[in-house]
Amino acid sequence: MGDNEDGPALTERVELHGCSCKVGQGELDDILTDAGLVADQPELLFGVGEDAAARQLRDDLALVQTVDFFTPIVDDPYDFGRVAACNAASDAFASGAVDDVSCLVVMALPRDLTDVAVDVLAGIVDALETMDGAVAGGHTTLNPWPIAGGAVTATAHPDDLLTTRAAAPGDRLYLTKPLGTQPAMGALRVKDGEFAATVRETAPRPVEAIAEDALAWMTTPNRTAAVAAREYASAATDVTGFGLAGQSSVLAENAGVGVALTHLPVIDGTPALSSLFGYGLASGESAETSGGLLLSVPSDHETDLQNALADAGVFHRNVGRVTDGTGVTLDDPTREEIRR
């Protein structure tokens, strides 16, 4: 993580951190219903209810748009920008759009923190460059809580697009990053007092090492995973504020299927911390920030997907399957602790 010893502690300026600052899944559903945004829109290939919106421009070209921003999950402004950029672009990648990536930056800062804007923006720019993307402009305002992210556009052939709707019973589910960013970074924020000692005694390895692993995953773009997977996946989403169980629930509802989660890959050391904080990692409910892609793949393409992800150097684990029925089940899943 970046050196921020002399800079402001960004996470101390907010009450909720990273994707945990977002409106809850149930409340969001109510808002969309009350606003009348529940039906398909004829102008779009897909939109509300998916990770991004897609509009067909030509027979061979679709434009994908999304917007995402959040509060700091790390203190270092440069790292905050990198995480924010990776998280914002992830929704486009989850939709299968990986080309012509551009971002209109959304940034807001308290008046006394405007001097960190350069570092936050530098992090966003550098992260976009690793995705063959570019910052195309943006908007910056004053705000009591610092936030960063952006409106991302990308293109794809319409046949390459993915939604959550086409998952079918018998599909296997793969995740491309381990879980546990919320407890990893939550532990790092506890620096002083008796509870800090409790956190460090609870962690099975140094809190700083756990957080370093989490940051490395959060700043890994999902573009490579999307390129490798989109030929074989039937459906996809990315795992962020709703957690694995929540995003699986979205996929299950949109596709009219059930989801059985059977395996939880987690960042080494985060289960004990999650239990201490009550974040719900063991049940897949812990909020993730800039998490991996959740990919649904027909069983006859499972080996193809595994090989494509492995050849691209992308972490991946089978975390469950799509079933007949409805909803999400987690029946004593196996747990695997991952070190970066």
Rank of each mutant, 00 (worst) to 15 (best):
G2F: 15
E5Q: 10
T11L: 05
E12Q: 15
L16S: 12
C21P: 05
K22M: 12
V23R: 13
G26W: 04
E27H: 07
L28F: 13
D29E: 14
A39V: 13
Q41M: 09
L44I: 10
Q56T: 05
L57R: 09
D59Q: 13
D59C: 10
Q65A: 14
T71P: 03
Y78S: 11
G81C: 07
C86D: 07
A88I: 02
A94R: 05
V101G: 00
L109F: 05
D115T: 15
V118N: 10
D119I: 13
D126Q: 10
T130P: 08
G133M: 02
V135H: 03
A136C: 08
G137H: 11
T140R: 07
G149Y: 01
V152S: 03
A154G: 06
A156R: 05
A156D: 02
H157A: 11
D159I: 06
D160I: 02
L161T: 04
L162Y: 03
L162N: 02
P169R: 11
R172A: 07
T176A: 02
P178Y: 02
M185C: 14
G186I: 06
E194T: 15
T198S: 09
T198D: 14
T202D: 12
T202H: 07
A203Q: 13
E212C: 13
D213F: 00
L215P: 11
R223Q: 13
S234H: 00
G241L: 01
V250G: 04
L251V: 04
A252M: 03
A252F: 04
A255K: 01
V257K: 00
H263D: 11
V266M: 14
P271M: 04
S275G: 13
S275C: 08
F277Q: 12
Y279H: 12
Y279C: 08
G280L: 11
S286P: 08
A287V: 10
V297P: 04
G313H: 06
G313D: 08
V314N: 01
N318G: 09
T323F: 06
D324A: 15
G325Y: 06
V328S: 06
D332G: 05
P333M: 08
P333H: 08
E336A: 02
E336V: 08
